[in-house]
Design a protein around this nucleic acid. Structure first.
Length: 554
RNA sequence: UGGGAUGUCGCCAAGUUGGUUAAGGCACAGGACUUUGACUCCUGCAUUCGUGGGUUCAAAUCCCGCCAUCCCAGCCA
């Protein structure tokens, strides 16, 4: 259709379904979706997929998307989460249709529908306790038996249900069940509970209600009330679809929405379990839900990831029904891709080692003009102070270089990015045998534009003036590596059934270039460092994106 | 023989009204370029579509059997 110019054809089976619907004229060609979180926690990268799928599907077909808080369980939910969810959705760049919605706003209507079902003989009040119900409900392989209360008269059911609402019964004493089929091989269809009693204060309706609808009853009605056409959800609700359709049919909804399930997003070495993320916060392993190492939307934001990068990631991953786990490297690729031309780049020495240019005057300071982003001239230049004492990244110097190492080592020449070519003469170690200082001499007239500038050197490294550099603390990794990856790491340890990689929790102190007054440093968000990776294959290099925001946070 | 779903390169994932050599991206490898070993640019990377049969001139696509994995027995969502 409109993707002649799209370089990437994102795979998405939902599009096919919608296009089919549109051809048949279903829903009058309209597409109306919704993102329906339960306000009981912070959003993570997995939710980001749901958000993108819901909003982008609507966007693609010129439709609308609601934000709806599915607040049908007062004991689990809190307004605390509502704000953070709205903030995260907005940050991802989406606008929902009108005001945010709340399932609790439809409680009265839902109640009416329940009464309607009772009148049709499609729902009954059941007095069985949860324990007793277990015996009636059967198992996965054995059919269930009808509740002895299923035969109550409509009149009695109406009366009892009204009294449930009136608060005459205590929690758990009675429920309203859908009257469907105890023989069904689908457990969801064996007379599921559609209303239960909770004498609890709801975060929005307060004490107005003491009966609350169950998800399976409430959700299809919420969708119907809002005029949703395509109700997108994750795979585990596949078994619920017959019930979803049953509710809509029995409630005689005219243009019933269609539930479509897709696989949730899993990332390698990341957890998206609320329980585990909460553990990290509670145990102070991280500083909070928005710690830059967390896979939460707010964590990603703090880490310096852009909404554009996350959206493009979700699009590229595609939407299908096969359970999958996407390589974290793919997310990183999308972030680099988005950041590449967008932001100025500054130099840094994350694990610093001091370099002294012995033939450079002690009191001299040159301000060298360096491009902010070689690939995007529009980002201009900045002036970076160059002095006799510098810091370079520890990985850019080696006492005993392996074969193809062509950065700094004794006897070698390297280019200090944007500055001189220097010759490494010697180095000094401290009592622990660690490299303490490296001594170099700069080669004259090798600055950009000077006559010896084209002198060939194989290595180019980053540097920061020791006098001017700004100290930062930085995570060794930009996110937590958990579980599988940690299992391969000798430094990993277990915490409440969760494997953590110690390295991922450690921070190092380093330096970044000073902000230059004229250059509005707040726009310099990212430091890019190419260096020898200590933790993967030897001689392997990679480019790391570090957010200064996250660097300062720790 | 509970029910539902999924299985295409290390990771995602097109392709499923059967029709030449099975898209694309990530990762990886090799080369060119390079004042970031990045970026960019070339090149390579599944005779094979979970598996065994069958139908057919022709199957990843149709049929049958089998296997593997995931989900379902909350008065959670």
């Amino acid at each position: 259709m409109n993707d002649m110019n799209d370089t990437v054809m994102a795979s998405n089976f939902i599009h096919n379904i919608i296009e089919e619907d549109n051809e048949k004229g279903a829903y009058g060609g309209k597409v109306y979706t919704r993102f329906p979180p339960e306000p009981n926690g912070y959003l993570h990268i997995g939710h980001a997929k749901a958000i993108c799928v819901d909003f982008m599907t609507a966007e693609k077909y010129g439709g609308k998307c609601n934000l709806r808080f599915d607040d049908t369980n007062p004991v689990k939910e809190d307004t605390e989460y509502v704000d953070s969810i709205m903030e995260d959705v907005k940050w991802l760049g989406f606008s929902w249709e009108g005001e945010e919605r709340y399932a609790s706003d439809y409680f009265e209507k839902m109640y009416d529908y329940a009464v309607f079902l009772i009148k049709k003989g499609k729902a009954y009040v059941c007095d069985l306790s949860p324990e007793e119900w277990k015996e009636y409900k059967g198992t996965l392989t054995e059919p269930g038996r009808k509740s002895p209360y299923a035969s109550r008269s409509v009149r009695e059911n109406l009366d009892l249900f009204a009294r449930m609402r009136a608060g005459e019964f205590s929690d758990g004493e009675r429920v309203l069940r859908a009257n469907i089929d105890m023989q069904s091989p689908n457990m969801n269809m064996r007379d599921p509970v559609i209303y239960r009693i909770y004498h609890a204060t709801h975060h929005r309706t307060g004490d107005k209600w003491c009966i609350y609808p169950m998800y399976d009853f409430a959700h299809p009605l919420e969708d119907a009330i809002e005029g949703i056409t395509h109700s997108l959800c994750t795979l585990e609700f596949e078994d619920h679809r017959p019930l979803y359709d049953w509710v809509l049919r029995e409630c005689e909804i005219e243009q019933p929405p269609k539930q479509i399930e897709f696989a949730r997003l899993e990332l390698t070495n990341n957890v998206t379990s609320k329980r585990k993320l909460k553990l990290l916060v509670d145990e102070h392993i991280v500083d909070g839900w928005d710690d830059p190492r967390m896979p939460t939307v707010s964590g990603l934001r703090a880490r310096g990831y852009t909404p554009e990068a996350i959206r493009s990631f979700i699009e590229k991953v595609g939407v299908s029904k096969s359970k999958s786990e996407v390589d974290y490297a793919f997310l990183e690729y999308c972030v680099r891709e988005d950041l590449k031309l967008k932001y100025p780049r500054v130099m840094a020495a994350i694990e610093p080692i001091k370099v002294i240019i012995t033939n450079y005057p002690e009191d001299k300071c040159e301000y060298l003009e360096i491009e902010n982003n070689k690939e995007n001239e529009a980002l201009g230049t900045r002036k970076v102070p160059f002095t006799r004492e510098l810091y370079i990244d520890r990985t850019d110097f080696m006492e005993e270089p392996p074969k193809k190492y062509f950065r700094m080592f004794k006897g070698n020449n390297v280019r200090l990015m944007g500055a001189y070519i220097v010759h490494c003469d010697d180095f000094k170690k401290n009592e622990n045998g660690e490299i303490e200082e490296v001594y170099c001499t700069y080669i004259e007239k090798t600055k950009s534009g000077e006559e010896n500038a084209d002198m060939k050197v194989k290595g180019v490294i980053q540097w920061v003036s020791a006098k001017h550099g700004i100290p930062v603390k930085c995570n060794l990794y930009d996110h937590l590596f958990l579980e599988k990856d940690a299992a391969n790491d000798e430094n990993s340890y277990e915490k409440d059934g969760m494997l953590l990689n110690r390295c991922s929790l450690e921070t190092v102190s380093g330096f970044v270039e000073p902000y230059c007054e004229e250059s509005e440093f707040d726009k310099f968000q990212f430091v890019r460092i190419g260096y020898f990776c200590k933790n993967t294959k030897e001689n392997n290099t990679f480019n790391r994106v570090v957010s200064l925001k996250s660097s300062f946070k720790i």
